[in-house]
Amino acid sequence: MSGDKSKNTSFGTKILLGIRPHLMLLAALFLLMIIMSFIAPNFLTKGNMLDIMRVNSIKGIMSIGMTLILLTGGIDLSIGATFAVAGAVAASLIGGGYSDYATSNLIKLPTLIAIIIALMVSAMIGMVNGVVITKLRVEPFIATLAMMTFARGITYLYTGGYPINFKPIPDSFAWFGKGYFLDIPVPALIFIIVVLVGGFVLKYTCYGRSLYAIGGNRETAKLSGIQINKNICRAYIVMAVLSGLAGIIMTSRVASASAVAGEGYEMDVIASVVLGGTSLAGGKGTIIGTVIGIFILGVIENGLNILGIPTYFKIIIKGLIIILALGYHAFSHTSKKRKVTV
């Protein structure tokens, strides 16, 4: 009984403890929301909130994967391309998917199987990334840069450069991008699930702890019996599968797959993860931080949209915010350090 009770109370405090390092970011997020709600009266409506959820869930799903990658001290630039590959594969295999390029129309499979195949193709891309990085010891930056070109090429090869549209889109597939479950948009729901699983994995599994250890000090991790190559490979596979999932959801939402889909997404995703306090050097970061990072960028984008600010101002502001936020991180960090040595 008493054990139960202590667990219950500690659950609440645990959440608080989890959030504490991100208080500044969280405060920034709330401040932003308050400002936005003053400037744009329809900002704080339920519809708009759900919209923010839905819009950001796609990059959000990828950000969770990217958090794992950055924790190992790696990076993945190929996620935008993987996003497109998965979208194209799924669209071409699903009944109703139609393209002017004949090979895209050859095989039709049930929706679920098509999606699984698309995810498996993504997983293979991730596995190749992982193997090239761990076995051939190519730097992640270069390895995934090459994969980005390569996977994009595969997409062009597969689609012939033609978009794949739907005539018509099957309901079973449309549900992923446009459907609702208990009033929540399905993409947002999938995002929430990915966040919860990601948070659980990082906090409560050996695998999660291993990722921190590998990024924190690879040699120590190895000498403590952690299998470096296997764990890193897995992270790239998870990353690729999540990118593929995001690509499929996007394809469903816009009812079209294109060879240029997801171009440049890697940069946005990395930005939101880093904004959430995850270190590019590895070993430091949390899912909560990433989620806050995503929403800070998301809320800004949404607010600026409501205000009708042109796209280019949005990207300027986004860039400035990344610099300011990270500059603040670095600044507060060094001042803390100084205190310790004095």
């Binding site: 990076i75 930056f141 940069m267 990395i270 930005a271 880093v274 590019l280 050097a281 042109p310 796209t311 280019y312 101002f313 949005k314 990207i315 300027i316 502001i317 986004k318 860039g319 400035l320 990344i322 610099i323 990270l326 500059g327 670095a330 600044f331 060094t334």
Partner: peptide, 23 residues
């Protein structure tokens, strides 16, 4: 000065400069 990793700093600048292009 802000000690931001070059990768991220120039990533942000990529965004800012592209915005300025439109301006």
């Amino acid at each position: 000065k802000l000690k931001i990793a070059p990768f991220v700093a120039t990533l942000a600048m990529m965004s800012i400069a592209r915005g300025l292009v439109y301006v």
